[in-house]
Nucleic acid binder design. Structure first.
Lengths: 205, 205
DNA sequence: TATATTTAGTGATTTTTTTCACTTAAAGCT
DNA sequence: AGCTTTAAGTGAAAAAAATCACTAAATATA
C-alpha cells in the first residue's frame, strides 16, 4: 500500500465530508458525490479508496459510517494528537482557540511566544509559555505536532527546536520553506504565497 | 506559454524569495539556491523559468532584480489588488490586519460579517460592513479578490455573492470545497484538512 | 426469472510533471 | 589565448498522477 501525498490529502478531505454526511444521517454515498465534495473526479476517488484497500458496495456506493471508521483506522485519524502553537501573534492566538482543531482530535496543549509581555496578556484556557521553555514542555507533554506561526526569520529555528524535542509533524504558517528531517511530516500554509498565486493565475488565465 | 498551477505556485514562491534576496542586496542567485529556498529541485526551477520565457546568465545564475521585475511583469505581481475578507471571527480579524498582505500589494479594502454586533466591536482601520452590503461594496470598490473565513455552511453562499459582484479570485479558509466559475481562480486553505493530512502521513510513514 | 440499471473495481492508457543527462555560454585562471 | 569550471538551457526519458473504458456485482423492475 503505497500512498502518495495527494491521495492522503484527498482521503483526508473525504474523511471530513463523511463526518458531515454522518451527522446528516446519510447512510451511503457514491464516488461521484465524494468527488464533487472534495473537488476531484469519481475515478480518482475510487482509485484512492482502492489504494487504501477499502471497498464499497455495487450499486449502493460506500457505507458512510463504515468507510469513515475504516479510514479512521487506516490513517489513525481518530487518534488524539497533542499539538502546540508557536508564535502568539494575531494568527497564533486565533489558532489557539480554533475549536475545529479540538473537534477533530487535535488537542492544542500549549502555546509559545518569545515575548513575555504578550504571554501575560493572552486570554485563553490553554497554557502559554516562553519560547525558551519550548523544548522542555514539548518533550514533557509528548507533543507530536507543532504549528509554526512566528515571523519568517524565526521559523527555521523553531522548526529545529520542535523536531529536536520530538515533534513528528509540522504545520508551517510562515512564508519560508523549512528544512526538517524526512521522517517529520511537513506542510506549508503560506497565505501570501497563496494569494499571490491566485493573483498570478488571474493575470495569466 | 502554458503555465501549470504548480509552476505558478513555484514561481510565486521564487518571487517571494527574490524579494528577500533583493533586500539583502544579493545580485545573482543560482537555480540551486532558488530550489532550496522554495523546496524544489534545480531542474524544476530552471524549467519553470524557461516556461515563462525568462533566462539567466551562464555561470552567474539569475539576476535577482531583473528576474523579480520580469516575473512581476509576466504574472502582474506588482499590480495592486483590492481584496476583502468575509467573516470576521478570530481568523478573519487576524487576516484583516495581516501586514504581509499589504506589503505584497494586496490591499484589504473591506471586511464583512453577518453579525452587526461584531462589526461594532471590531477595532481596525479597515472599513467593515454587514454581509448584506457585500454585493454593493464589492462592486463599487471594484474588489478583485475575496477571502472567505466564514463557517462551512455559509461559505458557498458567500462565494456565490462574491463572484456575482465581480470578484475574480477566491481564497477559501472554510473546510468545504466551493464551486466557482472556471474563470474565477480559487484556492483552499483548510487548516483542519492540513493538520489531518500531516497526522495521516505520520501514521502511514 | 430474466433484463435493465447503477455503481464500484481495475487494468490499460494517457497526460502531466519531474528528473536526467547532455550542450552551450560565459567567466576565471594559467 | 586556451583550458577549466560553473551554471543555465533543453530535449529526451522516467516517474507520477489522472482518466478511460470496460468488467462485475448487486439491486430494481417487468
Amino acid at each position: 500500500m503505497k500512498l502518495s501525498n495527494k491521495t492522503v490529502e484527498r482521503v483526508c478531505r473525504v474523511f471530513g465530508y463523511l463526518k458531515v454526511l454522518e451527522d446528516k444521517g446519510i447512510a451511503f454515498v457514491s464516488s461521484l458525490d465524494l468527488a464533487k465534495a472534495i473537488g476531484a473526479t469519481e475515478s480518482t476517488v475510487r482509485k484512492d479508496i482502492s489504494i487504501l484497500e477499502l471497498t464499497g458496495f455495487s450499486r449502493k456506493g460506500y457505507d458512510v459510517m463504515l468507510l469513515k471508521k475504516e479510514l479512521g483506522v487506516k490513517l489513525q485519524l481518530n487518534k488524539k494528537r497533542k499539538a502546540c502553537i508557536v508564535g502568539l501573534g494575531r494568527l497564533g492566538t486565533a489558532l489557539l482557540d480554533y475549536e475545529k482543531f479540538q473537534e477533530d482530535g487535535f488537542e492544542i496543549v500549549a502555546g509559545f511566544d518569545a515575548s513575555i509581555n504578550k504571554i501575560e496578556r493572552i486570554n485563553t484556557v490553554i497554557d502559554v509559555f516562553a519560547v525558551d521553555d519550548l523544548e522542555n514542555v514539548v518533550a514533557q507533554r509528548k507533543i507530536e505536532l507543532g504549528i509554526i506561526a512566528v515571523p519568517a526569520q524565526a521559523a527555521q529555528g523553531i522548526a529545529y527546536k520542535l523536531v529536536k524535542s520530538g515533534v513528528k509533524g509540522v504545520l508551517n504558517f510562515s512564508p519560508v520553506k523549512l528544512i526538517v528531517p524526512k521522517n517529520v511530516m511537513y506542510l506549508d500554509m503560506d497565505f501570501t504565497s497563496a494569494l499571490r498565486s491566485i493573483a498570478a493565475r488571474m493575470a495569466v488565465c
